[in-house]
Write a protein that binds this DNA or RNA. Structure first.
Lengths: 133, 133
DNA sequence: CTGAATCCAGTGCGATACTG
DNA sequence: CAGTATCGCACTGGATTCAG
């Protein structure tokens, strides 16, 4: 833990850019979104996928949310959208370098969870078993 | 990108434990939560803080959400809660090892955002400027 | 000071129906 | 196939009030 300057009552994070703060927050929020995370994974694994393919691989997602999720990811430069001018329509999605990088940066979290899953579950179980006070 | 087995139409993630999947998801979701992220940071930086101190460092949080957030983090074993049996009541919060570890595992994401903040903003700007189709 | 309980407005999301 | 548009509910979270 970072030592605190003695007697320092000034606000925290003097060194943290509020813009970065907001962005981190937003980005984490984005990936935290159930669907975004799943889409990120599917595209990471599947490479290039069509709308329907994604839909099929993530059965729980509604068509509305899938569209919405993909749009937002596209806007953020995380996925690339390719429309093939044919009938029937064919639209393919794949991760951009940005999206791939973001995906990788979450590997640490992923590994942490794998390593600490049991600890968290134990903590929950213990907490829930406590005398209600 | 992981190569796909040729002709393999079986569902994705054969290697991914659905339990881990759910947990990653849940944990990311938790930290994505505005207040949890802020609390995590404050405790990481401040060490041990009282309820009111946290409240003061995160002015935007309502008392309800702060309580709720801390309870959940406590249940997950991320923070430790110490009640001092005095009047007026004094309750202190600090990160557990688990909480500290989780916090660290997010450093990668943090760094990625710092490094790619401009790229994302540029992507958004470009997306928003596109011919509306 | 710390926290639980209640009320209420905003909205995220699913279901459904329609279009190119 | 790949969307958009609309409706309605459920849940979230803020404000407020009460309590130990």
């Amino acid at each position: 833990m970072a030592p605190l300057a003695a007697g320092n009552e000034s606000p925290a994070y003097s060194e943290i850019d509020p813009k970065v703060e907001a962005m981190v927050h937003e980005l984490i929020g984005r990936v935290a979104d159930k669907w975004t995370l799943l889409v990120l994974e599917e595209l990471e694994e599947g490479g290039t996928l069509r709308f329907t393919e994604l839909s099929r691989k993530i059965p729980a997602v509604s068509q509305k949310m899938l569209t919405q999720t993909l749009r937002q990811m596209e806007r953020d430069g995380l996925v690339h959208r390719t429309v093939h001018p044919v009938v029937p329509p064919k639209v393919e999605y794949c991760l951009t370098e940005l999206g791939h990088g973001l995906s990788e940066s979450f590997c640490g979290v992923w590994r942490w969870v794998e390593g600490n899953l049991e600890a968290v579950e134990a903590a929950r179980k213990e907490f829930d078993a406590r005398p209600s006070g």
